[in-house]
């Protein structure tokens, strides 16, 4: 159904879950400052990173994304003071589901990206992109790919 992971023209495809008020402005800033990161990175913005559903992550990886990155609110979250722990639980649960379904938990990463963390975002993307390129192509899709 989808192209085999890793063969897309610009290398591994990464889906980023960002947050409207914290990490999305950071990602915007990376663009405004013309920092480089791979064009195969796309973003879905949500209110808060603890609202990412593990099922979305599994869906994204099984449908053809090579990696999912949660650009978390971290300590800056305006909604939840324990946002980091909660987002950590989202990651844990998604990795549990992935492993259960034969996926590779290394295809999911999370890091806090603040509203001015443009450089750190760009560098996370470059590194994650490079790390994904080294993984075995078929591992993410499992039997659903």
């Amino acid at each position: 159904m989808s192209a085999p992971p890793g063969v897309h023209a610009s290398g591994p495809r990464i889906l980023v879950f960002s947050t409207n008020n914290i990490s999305d402005p950071g990602i915007d800033l990376a663009g405004s400052a013309h920092m480089h990161y791979p064009a195969s990175v796309v973003v879905i913005s949500l209110p808060c990173s603890s609202g990412v559903k593990p099922s979305w992550i599994v869906h994204a990886l099984e449908r053809g994304f090579d990696g999912v990155f949660i650009a978390a609110d971290g300590g800056d979250c305006a909604y939840l003071s324990d946002c980091t722990d909660r987002t950590g639980k989202v990651v844990q649960e998604a990795q549990r589901l992935l492993t259960e379904r034969g996926g590779d938990p290394r295809r999911l990463k999370m890091a806090a990206v603040c509203s001015v963390c443009a450089e750190s975002f760009a560098s996370h993307m470059e590194k994650f992109h490079a790390a994904l390129a080294k993984l075995e192509p078929a591992s993410a899709g499992g039997s659903h790919g």
């Binding site: 989808s2 889906l15 879905i44 053809g64």
Partner: peptide, 18 residues
Amino acid sequence: YTDEQVLGMIDALLEEAA
């Protein structure tokens, strides 16, 4: 940001590859 919307967005983002 419903399931339907987010899953729909994920699929749409991948359309090119398909």
